[in-house]
Design a binder for these strands. Structure first.
Length: 269
DNA sequence: TGAATTGTTATCGT
DNA sequence: AACGATAACAATTC
């Protein structure tokens, strides 16, 4: 569920509490979640200073003072929780970092799909990720190349992290709506104007979502209010905010997909 | 109770 | 061979 805007929000929120802190302890009773292993992660991060906290695609990236990196992927249901005493007893705690200021950061994940990975080779670990859609180098021309170079349906292509890093199911549906494109349209059939519109739609919807601290739809990700601005995702049967036509749910590559059948026609325009 | 949920990876087909 | 489509998988919630 957490996609680029949610991960970006989490990174911005935890950055001031992590940067400059020394990791005093790391514990996890969840072998599958830590790579290469819990012991390896602990051995390499305990005693290190956190130099920076950033994001690459949907990965949270902790840069340590010896050049090592800790990558955290939240997948479907992962979340960070600070052990303040304020928020009761956190559930589904899978890993915990103790900091030199006495604070504890918890990684909670009901479904255990998340991953914590230590690497000395950040570039290698993120080599198969596509460009960052909000960076300056992600131009309409660059998107056009990515689209024209393949013959795929737009929706699975946009979800593919090796093509563009950070889009998930929500913002793919939202970007396609804003661009007026049907999710089954072949990527190599878009005209220049459509490519420019899709490029603008992707960037503007991601920026709007970050301004709104992401989307809160259920128990998984709290604190955002982008759900108020969603045009199609999760609005099956509700009227399109643009033309009042009922939003339709369909299945594209085993993914729930939401469109306005009038605003997103197949083929042309 | 089982359907829904998601990103990644393995596998199948063209 | 390379690419695209599809299935399987992790585990829980409602």
């Amino acid at each position: 569920m957490p996609e680029l805007p949610e991960v970006e929000t989490i990174v911005r929120q935890c950055r001031p509490r992590l940067v400059g802190r020394r990791i005093a302890a790391f514990n996890s009773a969840w072998p599958r979640g830590c790579r290469p292993s819990v012991a390896h992660v602990r051995r390499n991060i305990v005693g290190r200073l956190v130099h920076a906290v950033s994001r690459r695609g949907k990965f949270i990236v902790l840069e340590l003072d010896d050049g090592g990196h800790l990558l955290i992927h939240l997948r479907m249901s992962g979340r960070f929780e600070w052990l303040d005493g304020g928020n009761g007893r956190p559930r589904h705690v899978r890993a915990a970092w103790g900091l030199d200021d006495g604070n504890r950061l918890l990684f909670c994940d009901a479904r255990k799909f998340g991953r914590i990975t230590y690497t000395r080779d950040l570039a290698g670990a993120t080599a198969d990720l596509g460009p960052e859609p909000l960076e300056r180098c992600f131009t309409a021309a660059r998107l056009g190349h990515l689209l024209r170079h393949r013959r795929r349906q737009l929706k699975p292509l946009l979800l593919d992290q090796t093509v563009i890093a950070g889009l998930g199911n929500i913002y793919t549906d939202e970007a396609l709506f804003r661009a007026g494109l049907h999710p089954l349209t072949r990527s190599d059939t878009l005209r220049p104007a459509q490519i420019r519109r899709l490029h603008q739609a992707i960037r503007s919807v991601l920026r709007l979502a970050i301004r709104n601290h992401g989307t809160t739809l259920d128990w998984i990700y709290p604190g955002g209010w982008m759900q108020r601005r969603l045009m199609v995702y999760g609005r099956t049967g509700e009227p399109c905010r643009r033309c009042r036509t009922a939003i339709v749910a369909l299945r594209v590559g085993q993914r729930g997909t939401h469109i306005c059948p009038k605003c997103q026609r197949r083929g042309e325009e």
